[in-house]
């Protein structure tokens, strides 16, 4: 079953730069996909399109068989609840504790507090931060902060997890830990798409690699490495 499908997608920004040029691509349920390529090749655009942070200029994107391009504005929150997002800059709220940062994701989608009290410690245990519930983000290392942001993205058990350069700010050892975590999340059945620059990570994981250059897919390889 196709979890994500890009069908002849073109994205032209307001300043007339073409970020994506007529790309087509399918990602199956439970797959782990790397999006690689130089800065400005269109990786982030692909991710932003998927959560409707921006809209396509032409073509269509399907998530779990539904065209998300003609989604009404009021249905977008529903789409985002099914897609967890992780970013290079973590996007944690500095004035909330670790527990509250993760709980926030459940609160804003209206989950009752008993569900929150149950699920948040569970997911924080999964990312190995069960002992730091009451810490604030500034009291954590960069790797720990990224774990919190992964916990927040995954606490709602979304079928899809998107990661935009999640290891971009981390050292190799810490990055490895993050990748193990993402692999584990993928093993539970979550479809994971990760945009990255990190050659070592891509090479060591041996997963599907999609390479972009100037808005076009120049390579799509089953068990690929960063460069040919």
């Amino acid at each position: 079953m196709n979890m994500i499908e890009y069908r002849n997608v073109t994205k032209i920004y307001e300043d007339k730069t073409a970020a994506l040029k007529n790309i087509s691509l399918t990602i199956k349920k439970g797959e782990f996909v790397f999006l690689v390529g130089p800065s400005g090749s269109g990786k982030s655009t692909m991710i932003k399109l998927l959560i409707r942070e921006i809209a396509v200029s032409a073509g269509a994107i399907f998530v779990a068989g539904r065209n998300i391009c003609n989604l009404k504005q009021s249905r977008i929150p529903q789409l985002r609840r099914n897609i967890g997002s992780v970013f290079q800059d973590f996007k944690l709220l500095p004035n909330k504790t670790v527990f509250e940062n993760v709980a926030f994701a459940l609160e804003v989608i209206g989950k009752p507090s008993y569900v929150i009290k149950l699920q948040v410690p569970q997911v924080l245990k999964l990312v190995g931060l069960e002992h730091k519930l009451q810490s604030y983000p500034h009291q954590l290392s960069a790797g720990e902060q990224q774990r919190v942001s992964i916990a927040r993205a995954f606490v709602n058990r979304p079928p899809i997890l998107l990661a935009d350069e999640p290891t971009g700010n981390l050292d190799p050892v810490t990055s490895e830990g993050i990748m193990k975590l993402l692999s584990r999340i993928n093993l539970i059945g979550t479809t994971v798409a990760m945009a990255t620059h990190d050659k070592n990570i891509v090479n060591s994981m041996r997963r599907r690699v999609i390479e972009l250059e100037e808005g076009e897919i120049i390579r799509d390889q089953k068990r690929g490495v960063y460069g040919i």
Partner: peptide, 9 residues
């Protein structure tokens, strides 16, 4: 921004 990203209406 975070609220919107995690799907708050």
């Amino acid at each position: 921004e975070v609220m919107k990203l995690v799907g708050a209406t």
